[in-house]
């Protein structure tokens, strides 16, 4: 068995194979449900119903999708430049820490202080990614290793903060931080809707990234550096500067996930603020083929599966682990689909 490159894949391959990958994912889900002793159709139906079946469920899914859109965008932007940012989790927590630090005391009008909170969160996340990128551009240190390790450093740092300096005295001993001041919580999009402005901010960010990638000099340079750094350098594009700018954008986006989770949903910092949103962001970005608008759709899909699986599990008794398996399977199939759009398999 060998792979032969395809010079010019047609639309059937480019769009058909990813669709097939999603179909195959559903098929695997059915088999898993069967093994768990449930009716596969009922199980899938319950997942969909649990995710989008009611206003409450849909809003829950949108809330869950919000941090995934941010981390997915962060990864997609970086991967476009072949900057392998595996550290969205650390950047998310950096943003969350900064949000608490700025937001624990109210010192100005919310319309002033909220943007300052967001801006400094972005700066904190950007800073966390800046270190690994400078190590990469100056000394050739592999950013996969450094960004990954930063996740653990950051999590330990957060543990220290919530057990120590930022510990909530009214927290009954739980390791969580002092809360963000009440007037600095992100408002809900509409009265009575359990959906905060973080979701809108995520959509705006996706649009903004799309515009940057397709319409600006920086976006063009990021793509050039990602596709062929040698040719980009030869053509006079400052490759290292472009990588640094990419890192600032990517780190900032991931930090916004932390900002929006703390200021919009939880109200405080804790060690379990993110159940791996930074890592799931990698899956979201890959399945979305690094397209910013695709990230939004994929994040909704992924969030839907998680929310839906929770509710399905209660109703059908199939463990929620099915959601994790589905994520992994979707990623594997999508990577395979991407490979097969560019290569055909030759048996013999």
């Amino acid at each position: 068995m060998r792979l032969e490159p395809i010079a010019n894949p047609g639309p059937a391959r480019i769009y058909g194979l990813p669709a097939l990958a999603l179909g195959a994912t559903v098929l695997v889900a059915s088999v898993l449900a069967l093994i768990a002793g449930a009716n596969p159709f009922a199980t899938l139906g319950l997942i969909v119903k649990g995710a989008f079946g009611s206003k409450f469920a849909t809003l829950e899914t949108l809330n869950r999708a919000t941090p995934l859109i941010f981390t997915g965008l962060a990864v997609a932007v970086a991967f476009r430049a072949k900057l392998w940012n595996i550290g969205a989790e650390a950047q998310l927590y950096a943003g969350a820490v900064m949000t608490v630090l700025i937001g624990m005391h109210s010192w100005g009008a919310p319309w002033l202080q909220l943007p300052v909170m967001a801006a400094l969160s972005i700066a904190a996340g950007a800073l966390v990614l800046l270190g690994p990128v400078l190590l990469k551009t100056r000394f050739g240190v592999d950013e996969v290793v450094t960004t990954l390790l930063f996740n653990f450093i950051m999590l330990l740092f957060v543990s220290y903060l919530v057990e120590g300096p930022l510990k909530d005295p009214a927290g009954m001993g739980w390791p969580k931080s002092v809360p963000v001041a009440a007037d600095l919580r992100l408002p809900r999009i509409a009265q009575g809707l359990r959906l905060h402005w973080g979701f809108a901010l995520a959509l705006i960010s996706a649009l903004l990234i799309w515009v940057i990638q397709t319409r600006t000099v920086l976006g063009y340079q990021i793509r050039a550096v990602g596709q062929n750094p040698q040719a980009a350098r030869f053509a006079g594009i400052p490759v290292n500067a472009v990588l640094v700018k990419t890192a600032l954008i990517s780190g900032g986006l991931a930090a916004l996930a932390g900002f929006s989770e703390v200021a919009g949903l939880k109200g405080h910092l804790s060690r379990d603020l993110s159940p791996g949103f930074g890592y799931t962001g990698i899956i979201v970005a890959m399945v979305a083929l690094l397209h910013p608008l695709g990230v939004v759709l994929t994040a909704l899909f992924v969030a839907g599966i998680f929310v839906g699986a929770d509710s399905m599990s209660r109703a059908a008794g199939v463990p929620t682990y099915i959601a994790d398996i589905l994520m992994a399977v979707a990623l594997l199939f999508m990577v395979l689909a991407i490979l097969l759009t560019r290569y055909r398999v030759v048996w013999r």
Binding site: Y220, R223, A224, Q227, Q230, A231, A232, F234, A235, G236
Partner: peptide, 19 residues
């Protein structure tokens, strides 16, 4: 490897140095 970016369009390659 140096003169062009294979997956870029002709337009994107044509303005690589002057964009």
């Amino acid at each position: 490897k140096t003169g062009t970016i294979a997956d870029f369009t002709l337009t994107e390659n044509a303005v690589l140095e002057t964009h």
